[in-house]
Computed example of a mutant assay.
Amino acid sequence: MYGYAARYAPSTVIEARINALVGTDMLGRFLHVQHPTAKQAVITAIDLLGRAVISAAEIGISFPLQRRDQLLEYVLTLMGRDQSDDLVDFSIELLQTQTVALSACTTLVSIEPRLPMETRNRVMKATLGFFALPTEPSNIVESLITNLIILLGAILLTSGEDGRSRAEQLLHILRQLDPYVSASAEHQRRRGCVAVHEVLVKFRNLCSGGFGASGSYPTLSLKHIDQGGPRGSSSLPSAFVLPNRDSLSLGERIMAYLPRCADTDDEVRKVAIQIIALFFNISLSLPKQKTSANDIDLESSYGALSSLEDIVSIIRRASVDQIEVFHRVVSSVCTLLSKDELVVLLHSCTLAACDKVKQSADGSIQAIIVFIIRRGKDLREADVLRYHA
């Protein structure tokens, strides 16, 4: 009732209604409810408060949600997860509560005030472990994972101030997903790769749609929450607010996903190839630092990217030779990497060569050999030592 009172209040009194409900800490009194239906009701009330703020902004009444971070804490408490990553209760009722909670978290992180780093880390620590859930009951678990991926996209869209900080946020999220991308369990690798792909798509949309100027905070509408569209565009030139290519850490990131292109799971292979194509698609649209601009042959790069995108198109509609596809991916990557990115990739290859999936480890070793044979002549000892850590 409290949530609906705010959600459907007249636009002129929404802020006052929400302030009254949150300010009296009425919702905080319900943190100790035990029944799943009661927990879901409280979480839904909090979600409705957030959606009321979004709806008001859509008609020109913008205001922050008071004590938003505290409401996030309420949701995480009611979700039933502690600070550990242990998943010991797979009951249907709890999974349903957690699914509703993830949706509420998405709403709350999508509105002002901007998500502080501490709160972002708290939300991610409490939720990323869901990627390790078993596959059954499939319908509920799949819905929960979908909501988790949507939440990660919302965190990317709302916790940065400009292109550079969003790129940092992107890398933070992707690195947190690495354990699932390289997990021994196939379903975890699938989930991890799908999450990486969806977050990258949202980042690409930001690059093409425009990053807000530093300090701006346009409100994210419900439509944008669902579709991951950009929250607004800046009147400033795109080069002013875009991150540069170096901020993507391409060498490190490509090495994280290359083993999955040789994975034993067909879906993982397909998504991994799309991830690599997306990374280079984004990178070629970003400004380059002067020191590395002359190191990239644009004509060759666009040719290699075109080849990669052809592979993506082919694997979506036809069954193709897995070994041939992997060789073509490696060949394209070899051309697309700058010299500095190649050096970082080679320094990042240990985990790939020791991948938990033998087929992926073998493929990674083959790729490293190709990189050294084809690009080794471009590297000097000083280049390698510069990145040696």
Rank of each mutant, 00 (worst) to 15 (best):
K125S: 14
I140L: 05
F279T: 01
S55T: 10
I311N: 03
Q176W: 05
G232P: 03
Q83S: 13
Q359C: 03
P230Y: 15
V329M: 10
A318H: 13
R189A: 07
L174W: 02
L171D: 14
M117H: 15
P10S: 09
H224K: 10
Q70H: 08
L108Y: 14
G80T: 10
E118P: 04
M26F: 15
K39C: 04
P237Y: 13
S159H: 00
E324R: 11
Y387T: 08
G209M: 08
P259R: 02
D321R: 11
T146I: 01
L157F: 09
Q366P: 00
T99K: 14
A183I: 09
L222R: 02
I369R: 11
P237L: 11
S165D: 12
A52L: 04
I155W: 01
S103L: 08
T127G: 06
D383P: 00
Y74Q: 02
D295M: 09
S313Q: 14
H224P: 00
F280N: 05
Q34H: 13
L21G: 02
L87S: 08
L336Q: 05
I276W: 15
D69V: 01
A41N: 13
T119D: 11
L308P: 03
I276L: 11
F30T: 06
G303K: 06
E136F: 14
V201F: 05
R189L: 06
L305Q: 06
P179W: 04
D89T: 10
L351P: 00
P134L: 10
I282W: 10
V333D: 07
I92H: 13
S110N: 11
R190D: 03
F279L: 15
L78G: 04
L342S: 04
F130T: 07
M124G: 01
I140R: 04
A45Y: 07
A6P: 01
M26D: 04
S306F: 09
L31N: 06
R269Q: 15
P36R: 02
G153A: 01
I372F: 07
P36F: 10
Q70L: 13
A5P: 00
D246R: 05
G376K: 06
V22C: 05
A101N: 06
I311L: 14
R374S: 07
R190H: 05
E161G: 02
E142S: 12
L379W: 08
V75Y: 02
A185W: 07
A104F: 15
S208V: 14
